[in-house]
Design a protein around this nucleic acid. Structure first.
Lengths: 155, 155
DNA sequence: TCCTAATAGGACTAAAATAGTACTGTTTAC
DNA sequence: GTAAACAGTACTATTTTAGTCCTATTAGGA
């Protein structure tokens, strides 16, 4: 847990690809070709990103998708929100039926603090940075292959 | 995504319960009773937490589990590591077979930066804080019921 | 020594979330 | 009017997570 879904991974690839020509209009087929992610999947992602306000779409012949704003103004938080929905670190149920012991459930604000810190971190990184080839490579980390192949060892 | 699994949620409840009497030895049955989490599940959690070094265990009659160190020295990161394993925000595969396009996969260090920020946030919160009844309640947040029932709305 | 209380470990099943696909409808350019 | 392209939705398959159960091991006490 605490990791990105594959869809977000793919979504980042697609957006990174688009950010190479920020003004251009890209078709789903073209982006699928460029990223090697399956066409139906790319199509689904593009719809989600459009609904999330990150892309604009143009129907019909010569239509396609374009970035709704400059890559600097798109953050990791935006991408995750668009693809995974706006979820926090803890689940939330509007229904309280399964919790008998109130004594144990004062475990709230500390997690909220963590959650805010996470969102700050996510908001602090732009698509531009996400799309950038990495100059400083961590010594033991291999950086070929897609995002999902980057072993991240923290501490 | 980017949320805690139920097991981590339960694990926190169990640890919070134990932190009330930091030196004491608790049996799995007792903790299940106190937290209302199913006995086999609590048992499984306690094993994981023990393997993770957060608890010490004593077998046999009068045996049970105790905190391996003071609640101040147990962090949210420790709990997550013990229960969910030491994972980063991105998946990691040792096998590179599915990634054809190397051009798209320079998307590494920015995620690493985010990952480090997240781990810092998790390391900054101790079990003591997690177990504390929350004094400052966010206005719209209901803090009765278990952890999973706290709707966390960020921004 | 034997019985009971307790954890250790692992295998297995069930449920839920995710990923991926397919189909049908709508819009627009030529 | 036809083809290109997105929009929306429903469905299936896969994977992950949650939860249960069984057997083994350890330790205390009668």
């Amino acid at each position: 847990m605490l990791r990105l879904s594959k869809m977000t991974d793919y979504g980042t690839l697609v957006l990174a690809q688009m950010s190479r020509r920020p003004g251009a209009v890209h078709t789903a087929a073209e982006l699928s070709e460029a990223t090697q992610v399956g066409a139906p999947t790319v199509s689904k992602l593009l719809k989600q990103l459009t609904r999330g306000g990150l892309l604009t779409s143009q129907r019909g012949a010569n239509g396609g998708y374009a970035l709704a704003r400059s890559p600097e103004d798109i953050t990791a938080a935006d991408i995750i929100d668009a693809i995974e929905g706006h979820v926090g670190i803890t689940e939330c149920a509007t229904d309280h039926s399964n919790c008998e012991l109130e004594a144990n459930c004062n475990v709230g604000t500390a997690w909220q603090r963590i959650n805010v810190a996470i969102r700050d971190a996510l908001r602090d990184v732009s698509l531009t940075e996400l799309a950038q080839p990495s100059q400083l490579r961590a010594p033991e980390v291999r950086l070929t292959g897609s995002l999902k192949n980057i072993p991240i060892k923290v501490e």
